[in-house]
Write a protein that binds this DNA or RNA. Structure first.
Lengths: 230, 230
DNA sequence: TGTGGTCATATTGTCAACAATCTAAGCCTT
DNA sequence: AAGGCTTAGATTGTTGACAATATGACCACA
């Protein structure tokens, strides 16, 4: 069992917050593997926690879908099937479509300029990777994150960030990029950003949905081809 | 402070489950009012719980958006603004649209027949209320619940049931019915069910989205007219 | 060898006590 | 009267011990 991310002292308000962060990071990094059964006592030893805050963190991670808890029997890291992954993409499609529409209606000029600048940075990145990768850093530098935030629909942000994104991140690095896909994805991002800049909500929604549907179709065909197993 | 729902002994697996159920019911019934600050010790006295399971229940309710917790400062029942309510309806529109589409693709003939029977029962109910109300019991007898379940998209069910429906139920009984609206809503339900029976996912999605948009528009105009304050 | 029963141990759920933090009341100054 | 400071008490967060439940090892029997 490799040693997990080292917990360093931080400015969080509660130990439960710490616990949540440690565990989530360990899950996303695969240090706690999908399907793996994990025990409270072991986790407490490993992350230097006591059971109270740990249990609270487990509850939060459960509500995010990252863990599956069974009363009296313990906790497993979630493991989702190919079909379930595709269902997540269906949900993502409609929700991010809505986010793009609302972003088009609500983002101001400064924010739109920042979005374009973000894409300029991404374009440089793709070029440096010789078109072989389009890796987006998490958080503020992620295109999708910026659109969802730009929707200014707090509940939508919360649901996507809380319920979907972390779950999807368990799997994202599994999909090596199809040839030419980074440039294409970047172009699609550009089109979406342009629709948003024009305030054309309907078009932004349409383009975002198409973009995510393309990703879903890609995953679906690769699952069928047996290129990927989950 | 009126006495809350009486906790009766049930067959749940943990006291945390009990606590969750008691509290959720009290919130939905308005016994714990929107915006109200609630204290752990008081809740323990009231529901005959200890703080461990109670805190776990509070965490779950927080993740469902029914409570707002602030570290070291306590818990409040959520209170959402008119704008926030309308945002929820936007989300509901796209997600239930997806649910209707997937239900059209996946529900079998028996399930579709049950859906029609459900609507027959609703029609009788509306007639008995002389067109003045279209009250749907929660759970299995709720049209929307049946559609979402019929989508067979587990994550979608979970997100709608876990993140949206209970929140919306805090507010539903606030909206007295516009004249003629029950019959209209029932007719819209019928159309949706017919599209599902035909397996026409696109039409089912369109009709469901229109149905929910109508509800949102109704709420929006009444908020603007000052008919309703939250 | 396979199946069922028993029991010890490990693990999860709960409890009560202690620690940490916040809030409101009281007092003093302007 | 209003504002600021201090402190006691209330409340929330954590801890460790005990209770409840599940699991796996071992044994007996067919």
């Amino acid at each position: 069992m490799p040693e997990a991310s080292s917990p360093t002292q931080t400015s969080s308000q509660t130990r439960a917050d710490d616990a949540f962060r440690f565990l989530q990071a360990a899950i996303i990094k695969g240090e706690l593997a999908p399907g793996e059964k994990i025990g409270e006592v072991e986790l407490c030893d490993r992350f230097n926690l006591t059971r109270g805050p740990l249990r609270e963190a487990l509850g939060r991670l459960e509500s995010r879908g990252l863990l599956v808890r069974k009363p009296h029997a313990g906790v497993r890291v979630v493991s989702i099937s190919g079909d379930e992954l595709l269902e997540l993409y269906h949900i993502r499609e409609v929700m991010e479509g809505l986010a793009a529409r609302q972003a088009a209606e609500r983002m101001n000029q400064k924010e739109v300029a920042e979005l374009h600048a973000l894409l300029d940075g991404h374009e440089k990145m793709v070029a440096e990777a010789h078109g072989l990768a389009y890796f987006q850093a998490e958080g503020d530098y992620d295109f999708h994150f910026c659109i969802v935030t730009g929707s200014q629909n707090q509940k939508l942000v919360q649901m996507l960030m809380g319920d979907l994104y972390y779950l999807l991140r368990l799997y994202r690095c599994r999909f090596s990029t199809a040839p030419g896909r980074p440039q294409k994805a970047l172009k699609e991002h550009r089109h979406i950003a342009e629709a948003i800049a024009l305030g054309d909500g309907e078009l932004a929604q349409f383009l975002m949905q198409r973009h995510i549907r393309a990703a879903r179709n890609n995953i679906e065909s690769r699952l069928k081809d047996g290129d990927i197993t989950l």
